[in-house]
Design a protein around this nucleic acid. Structure first.
Length: 432
RNA sequence: GCCUGAGUAGCUCAAUGGUAGAGCAAAUGGCUGUUAACCAUUAGGUUCGGGGUUCAAAUCCCUGCUCAGGCGCCA
């Protein structure tokens, strides 16, 4: 007897196996029954034939309820009719646990979003959520592998911070032994310290924004990877983030094909994600947007309509770089060829998925940084450490942030970002 | 924060001022290759809360709550 997981079942063709898992579905037809078993690594059809089992054992099948915990044994068969191509012909089934007092809330038919999110702890068991979380796992692992392979040191930024990196956005305040602390809305500034200490450093952690956003692209708690490189400029940011995104997509295509199939993702769209990505300046983007029939003035930031043009115009991600200084934060380096511009860049995903990456070359010069910080009304005392980075060993350095959930939305093709994180936190959801 | 819409059986929805209904789920029975299996029967209701109009309100009006979609903010 062997004990495989469903993920590896095809290696056990014609072998006698035993599996523990949960009942996802049962279809019974008198003398034959089809059970869909899930074990956390996949879904497998198990066939119970009345003549091949003891009568007592077969009668158990009839009474199975969704999400009963079971142990099944039988021989692995290949079958073109089975989802996944393999099934088990059962010799026995044992019910390990069954809660008969209430029916399982999540059913095979459609449900509303609110109901599903209220049952998120159970919803995670269903096949689409299973596929999304497995792809999420692969994306996170591929990011970490990429960072390691490219000689970035993982240097965790703190979650409790004394104040905001950018004055404009709203922060979650917490009581910190009698004074205020804020949940981090970006680990970037700490990574600038990291880059000057370790040349290439990154953080990968949760980020908190108390903005009352109410869209399909925002969460109040989300994950971000923020690499920072010493002796690097804006082009290096574009090169590195492009390489990273290509690597992630390739890994998911290679290792999570089954999950993409469950999600009915159009693979051909992902196969096109290869270097080089399109690169255009803000000036060119404004022109493109106006030519596409969406109006905007030079100097304005992109809104939803403008984002949509940029995100639907190409079949690959596109970089927009060199923005007006007015619409970007204080720490971005000024373009030496035009003082009205900063060396910042955003990457937009195709298929309307919007902004994935934001990055910039950071301001190098101590005096300029102090001047810009003052203009942004920054708390000088709280940022003394950050300013001090420019006193000793300052150098051109640059970095970016990649939104993990937005990347997952795009790659999985899901409509709303709330299903790309296990337990989403949004403006009106803190449960479960 | 602004705009728009929704709330009826466990779930998804119907019933346009006149007897609250269907599909799924549950329970019982039938069916030897199902694919959200199918067929039959049974059970299942404070129509989101509060107030009002009316002979009569799920339906119209006021108010509160909850949620969704879009915008703004951003990754």
């Amino acid at each position: 007897m062997q004990y495989p997981t469903i993920e590896n079942i095809k290696k056990f063709h014609e072998k006698e196996v035993s599996l523990k898992g949960w009942i996802k579905n049962v279809r019974s037809s008198g003398k034959i029954a089809f059970i869909i078993l899930r074990d956390g690594t996949g879904f497998l059809q198990c066939v119970a034939v009345k003549n091949e089992m003891s009568e007592e054992n077969y009668s158990l099948v009839k009474d199975l309820l969704y999400e009963d915990t079971v142990e099944v044994s039988g021989v692995v068969k290949s079958s073109p009719k089975a989802p996944g191509g393999y099934e088990i012909l059962l010799s026995s089934i044992k019910v390990l646990y069954s809660y008969k007092k209430e029916e399982y809330p999540i059913q095979k038919k459609e449900h509303g979003v609110d109901f599903l999110l209220n049952h998120r702890h159970l919803w995670l068991r269903s096949s689409k959520q299973f596929a999304i979380m497995r792809i999420r796992d692969e994306i996170i692992k591929s990011i970490r592998d990429f960072m390691y392979d490219n000689e970035f040191l993982l240097l965790d930024s703190p979650i409790f911070t004394p104040t905001a990196p950018e004055g404009t956005t709203t922060l979650f305040a917490t009581d910190y032994f009698g004074s205020d602390a804020y949940l981090s809305q970006s680990g970037q500034l700490y990574q600038e310290a990291g880059a000057l200490a370790f040349r290439r450093a990154y953080c990968f952690g949760p980020t908190f924004r108390a903005e009352k956003s109410k869209t399909k692209r925002h969460l109040t708690e989300f994950w971000m990877v923020e690499p920072e490189m010493a002796f690097a400029d804006l082009d290096d940011v574009m090169d590195m983030s492009e390489k990273l995104v290509c690597y992630i997509v390739k890994r998911v295509l290679e290792r999570r094909g089954e999950e993409l199939k469950i999600l009915e993702r159009d693979i051909s769209k992902l196969e096109k994600i290869t270097s080089p990505f399109h690169r255009m300046t803000y000036d060119e983007a404004v022109k493109l947007i106006n030519e596409s029939g969406v109006k905007m003035e030079w100097g304005e930031d992109f809104g939803a309509e403008q984002d949509s043009v940029l995100s639907n115009h190409f079949d690959k991600p596109v970089f927009i770089h060199r923005f007006p200084k007015k619409i970007k934060p204080f720490y971005m380096e000024i373009d030496p060829e035009n003082p009205e511009l900063v060396l910042g860049v955003d990457m937009y995903a195709p298929e309307g998925y919007g902004e994935l990456v934001g990055g910039s070359q950071r301001m190098f010069d101590l005096d300029n940084l102090v001047k810009e910080a003052k203009k942004s009304n920054l708390d000088e005392e709280a940022y003394r450490w950050y300013i001090e980075l420019r006193k000793w060993g300052s150098c051109p350095h640059a970095g970016f942030g990649l939104g993990v959930e937005r990347t997952i939305s795009w790659i999985t093709g899901v409509e709303h970002i709330r299903t790309t994180i296990p337990f989403p936190r949004t403006i009106n959801r803190l449960y479960p």
